[in-house]
Amino acid sequence: MRKIQQRPWATYVILIIQLVVFGWEIFKGGSQNIAALLASGAKVNSLVAQGEWWRLVTPIFVHIGWQHILINSLTLYFMGQQLEFLYGPLKFSIIYLLSGIGGNLMSFAFGSQNSISAGASTSLFGLFGLYVALGIIFKNNQVIRQWSQQFLILIVFNLVADIFIGDIDIWGHVGGALVGFLVGWIITIPQMKNALPKLWRIISTVGLIVLAIVLYRIGVVRA
């Protein structure tokens, strides 16, 4: 029974969902077909501004091309197992979804109005940002601090690469990393519930809410 409980079920479910969605894209005309991507829930800022707010959530599970879904799925598989073990399936799922939504909100606020964007990378950058937060929270833990430093370097490296690679939604990556970092201060690890001062959790929660509202308003005004 213990082995069953320790399986990363949330990670598996997320992987299955995005594979099913990818199959739906192919059925609708292909994972690089604009009509299929739109029908599957890809994000277009102008459509979000028109009231299709669910496109801030659904793009997390939509991917453009085989390479896109393969890289993101492998990254989720390996990172998800470790983080889900620490947080449990429910908290991990919340972190993953909030990071993805946050990245899509940042893209909505500052990205191109009519370009199509999709992918789990907003959520994955959130997991990167989460590791950075953990390195600060548990600064006396050498292993966690080393993880944090490595993921900070990974974030910087990827953002620099985004600048020089076309067709990359850099704002989505920035937003995902930022929200993941903030969520790291809010959602505690079950075995370490008293590791964070309550004040820091309150400040981070308020900051996250304000950030979401501001980003959404900017996106609507720009539309």
Rank of each mutant, 00 (worst) to 15 (best):
N194Y: 12
I136S: 14
H68R: 07
E25F: 00
G41V: 00
S40E: 01
L208P: 05
I4K: 09
D167K: 14
F138R: 09
I189W: 09
A161D: 12
L196S: 08
R145M: 14
A195L: 10
P197L: 15
L154Q: 10
I170G: 07
Y96T: 05
S46K: 10
Y96N: 03
F78V: 15
Q67P: 13
I168P: 01
L105C: 08
L215C: 07
F157A: 15
I203R: 01
N45C: 08
K91E: 05
L86P: 02
V183N: 00
Y96P: 02
V13C: 08
K91H: 12
Y87E: 05
I168L: 12
G172K: 07
L208V: 06
P59N: 02
A35M: 08
A49C: 00
V210T: 09
G65H: 11
L130H: 03
P197C: 13
Q18P: 03
I163Q: 11
I218F: 14
L76H: 02
L19R: 00
T75C: 14
G180P: 01
L15A: 07
L215H: 02
P190M: 11
A161W: 15
L134K: 02
G65K: 13
V20S: 02
V179H: 05
R222V: 08
V220G: 01
S46R: 12
V160N: 02
D162M: 10
